[in-house]
Write a protein that binds this DNA or RNA. Structure first.
Lengths: 148, 148
DNA sequence: ATAAAACCTGAAGTTAACTTCAGGTCAAGC
DNA sequence: GCTTGACCTGAAGTTAACTTCAGGTTTTAT
């Protein structure tokens, strides 16, 4: 059994956030001793799932829906599986998007590195696509379209 | 030259969002003809950078700071390079986080797939760590800690 | 020439996920 | 016994990034 302060340190989440989650109904009938919240292993597990689903881009109200299903027992296994499969696709897509973003950023890093080096001023005009290394060119055009 | 409506379709962004970006000063002295915004190649390029930086997790006000540097010429190349290098690290870290999130999600998918198959009800109790395939076990423990 | 479509503005409204506040209770150490 | 730190509540405040609204102007198609 942990206090809210201990859980706050354990998960590196402000106490106010934990109380907010509780207010939103994310901790299904959590125990209390004279008004004070007692976090058990169940709430620790719940918080791990919350963190995972949040990082996957899910909103609190949808996380609550999922946690409600968990309270309803085995009859909701199928819904829960579908939900995680949907999250899996969402995260995979986000990783693809971020890799494309990284391509653009790498191009910009290459560009400004060139533009900055050897004194660095007034060199911009001299930068032409022929200077672009093949892997940067490939990444750039996958991100922005062809280098004309 | 494009109208705001054309750009809206081109970038799949609502007209209201483009006007909001303009209000926030993201399009440095954009041209107008009798009050109506005219988007040139410069604004198209700016929007590509905005989209990239937004996906990298940057806030509008910081994107504005960057775009202001762009208007200040070569003296800001170094700042701009540093900024993109910081973005690069942020995106790389986010990709790592998302891959860990994916490990947890894959574990959950495995778990609920098992729990759902062959009739599916009341099978949960029978699920033990020995049933866990090695790659799921490895992913799970890297995400949640060891399977006890 | 006129009506519809597309554009404009400033101001107010929205949403999610928290955080802060004011005022009060509980528990541990001295 | 008393102070201090950790806990509690409901309500209000915050922030980012938009969106909507009300009312007006410009462009375009017939």
């Amino acid at each position: 059994m942990y206090s809210i302060g201990q859980i706050s340190k354990m998960f590196n989440l402000p106490v106010s956030t934990l109380r907010y989650y509780d207010r939103e109904g994310l901790f299904h009938d959590m125990q209390r001793t004279s008004g004070i919240r007692r976090f058990s292993q169940k709430e620790v597990d719940t918080l791990r799932v919350i963190e995972c689903l949040k990082r996957s881009g899910m909103e609190i109200k949808d996380i609550k829906t999922f946690l409600d299903w968990c309270e309803q027992g085995p009859s909701t296994y199928h819904k829960r599986l579908e939900m995680f499969q949907k999250r899996k696709r969402a995260v995979e897509e986000e990783i693809v998007r971020l890799n494309r973003t990284l391509d653009m950023i790498n191009y910009k890093c290459w560009y400004y590195t060139r533009a900055t080096e050897d004194g660095g001023e007034e060199k911009l005009a001299a930068l032409s696509p022929e200077d672009m290394p093949d892997e940067i060119r490939a990444a750039y055009s996958s991100a922005f379209g062809p280098v004309e």
